[in-house]
Simulated assay, not measured.
Amino acid sequence: MALRASRGPTDEEFAELVHVAWPGLYRTALLLVRDHALAEDLVQTALARTYSRWSGIRDVGAARAYARRALVTTATSWFRRRSFHGERPTAELPEPDTDRDPRGPTGDRIDLLAVLAQLAPRQRAVVVLRYYDDLSVEETADLLGVTTGTVKSQTSAALDNLRRLLGDGVDLPDETPTSTTTTITTGGHHG
């Protein structure tokens, strides 16, 4: 009886992964890094890392989770770099944005990127992964390489900070999400 060698996924399957996974990966990246160009770079880096391991992937269905892990791992390493925290050389110094209202110019729509930018990187990552990517505490802990207790405490601290930043009129969950339908809403009127 001859053993049949298992084949790795094809380049066509990788192209399909990119097509299907890009929008979700980009949204996660944008919420993590707060910049469109950096988010695109982050997704491309994550997909390049995924492709570099492509021949070793046996379950194409798990490749999307692998790409998300590569994205979060890369973002975490970027957070640790000093240059990522806003220190970039420029010809002119930018004006400080001290009067920016996170609710935006109309007062009832929240500028999500501006609010998330005020959270610490790990708190921002936990909020994005738990509430926007709808991951469990365990999945979030695994992606970030921390304990479930750390995810829970960072989520609690992040929600406290969001309540402080957003003030009255914004409904935030009291604890970490337990269902797939947790939302963060504003109390403004919508026409």
Rank of each mutant, 00 (worst) to 15 (best):
G149N: 08
E12R: 14
I110N: 00
P105R: 12
G167F: 10
G24Y: 04
A158F: 10
G86N: 12
A29M: 05
R49P: 03
E13V: 11
L25V: 12
Y66T: 13
A117Y: 09
R27S: 06
E87M: 06
A29I: 07
A158W: 11
A62K: 05
L144H: 01
Y66S: 06
A157F: 01
S55M: 06
T147M: 02
V20T: 05
H19V: 06
V146C: 09
R88I: 10
V126M: 02
R80F: 03
A46E: 15
A91W: 14
T186K: 01
M1K: 13
R163N: 03
T182C: 10
A117N: 04
W22E: 14
A67Y: 01
Y131L: 06
V20Q: 10
R103M: 08
H189G: 04
V43N: 02
P177T: 15
D108E: 14
T140A: 10
R64M: 02
L116T: 06
S52I: 04
W78P: 08
E138Y: 00
N161L: 07
H190C: 04
D108C: 09
A5S: 07
A5E: 13
E139K: 01
A67N: 11
H85G: 15
A39T: 03
Q123S: 05
T183H: 13
T180H: 11
V20H: 13
L42V: 08
T147F: 00
L135F: 15
P102C: 05
T73I: 02
G56E: 04
T90C: 07
G145M: 06
D133Q: 13
S55F: 07
A62E: 11
A29W: 07
E139D: 10
L17E: 00
L3D: 15
P9C: 12
H190T: 10
A70M: 12
V60G: 10
V137S: 03
V60L: 08
R27L: 08
R82Q: 14
G191S: 04
R100S: 13
V126E: 02
R7S: 15
T28I: 07
L143D: 05
D41A: 14
G191Y: 07
L42I: 05
R130M: 14
G8K: 03
L32F: 02
T185R: 11
S136K: 00
D99G: 10
P9I: 09
E40I: 00
E92K: 12
R81L: 13
A158S: 14
G145Y: 00
E87W: 07
R130C: 11
L129G: 03
G145W: 00
G104M: 09
V128R: 06
L31E: 15
G24Q: 08
L17K: 02
F14C: 13
L17F: 03
T176H: 03
L135G: 02
P102M: 14
R122D: 05
F79L: 01
D168I: 06
A117F: 04
T106V: 06
R82K: 12
G8C: 07
V126H: 01
R124T: 15
T181L: 09
D101R: 12
A62D: 07
T90P: 00
L112P: 00
V115P: 01
V18F: 05
M1F: 14
T98M: 10
G145I: 02
